[in-house]
Simulated assay, not measured.
Amino acid sequence: MEIIRTVAELQAKLGEARSRGTIGLVPTMGALHAGHLSLIERAREENDTVVVSVFVNPTQFNNPTDLATYPRTEEADAALMEGAGVDYAFMPSVEEVYPEPDNRQFDLGPVAEVMEGAMRPGHFNGVAQVVSKLFRFTEPTRAYFGEKDFQQIAVIRRMVELEGFEGLEIVDCPIKRETDGLALSSRNVRLSAEQRSVAPVIAQVLRSSLIKAREMSLADTKKWVTDTINVFPFMNVEYYEIVDALTMQPIAEWSESEQPVGCITVFCGDVRLIDNIKYVR
């Protein structure tokens, strides 16, 4: 595996690789875990060359404290990537990715206006900025994203449409979980031992809601999930929305969508955790 720090070197290496076959890109913000490794494994299976970017993107953080405390584990990340068979690890500086301020404003539409878009103003525009740059730097055949960030995938698909990345395949991959159900996240390392013991409640309640939803209205299901989680210590549901999987728009009745998805954000102490579940109708 080669570690690459500059766009010029990356493009030179990938120019050669492109002549030999397909390129798979896995964009990450580092602090890699088994969820990232599952994306890399999928990319390795489906492409001739695999690139993983490790970059904590400042433009998608609307909370300076969150940016400052986001875990950075470059040495450990490099070891995991090498063990997973990555060909190129792109680990640039902020100055390399943003040699000048990126003032682009993306017309991301309704998919970016709800849930995370409403709670974190500017977040998805920052995601679109950095991911569009990574796509231009690497010109991948396929790019891999985890379904834990369910809304983000819809936003990236919209950005791809806006920016005209023709022929680029966005591959969404299932959520990877701990044995107790907690969705893997780089933020999990910030949980105290007591918080970590409670955090799996999120996934457990979401799974139980699949059964409740057979008998409950959509509104009652939402209320049951929120009330049940909030009973536990440290836990505070920021939002729980049941949305259409394609439009990301909240629905009021089960009959309004063929693919309802429940998307949740919960503060466990001061650590913000997200998860989701698909309801089968």
Rank of each mutant, 00 (worst) to 15 (best):
L80T: 06
P71H: 11
F267A: 11
G83C: 10
M216H: 12
T59Q: 05
N230Q: 07
A43Q: 04
P64Q: 08
L39K: 04
F234E: 00
R214S: 06
I202W: 09
N57V: 05
R20V: 08
A245N: 03
E147F: 02
P58E: 12
A8G: 05
G24I: 10
L273A: 11
V225I: 15
E169R: 13
F137V: 10
A183M: 09
P250W: 13
T6N: 08
N236L: 14
A112R: 12
P92C: 04
A252H: 14
S93P: 01
L168A: 08
V205N: 04
I264W: 10
A43L: 10
V266N: 04
L14E: 11
G21T: 01
A12S: 12
M1V: 09
V51F: 07
V54D: 09
V86W: 08
R196P: 00
P250K: 12
S255M: 08
V97K: 07
A76Q: 14
A17K: 10
S132L: 06
V160R: 12
V189D: 07
E258P: 00
P99S: 09
L37V: 06
T49H: 08
S93L: 13
V261F: 09
V50H: 04
N230H: 06
R187S: 12
V97W: 09
R196E: 01
A17G: 02
E238C: 06
A193L: 07
K133R: 15
E9S: 11
Q259E: 07
V130F: 12
G167Y: 03
S197D: 03
L206H: 09
Q249H: 11
Y144N: 03
M1S: 13
K176W: 01
P260W: 07
S208I: 01
Q259R: 10
D227I: 04
T141K: 07
N57K: 05
L37S: 05
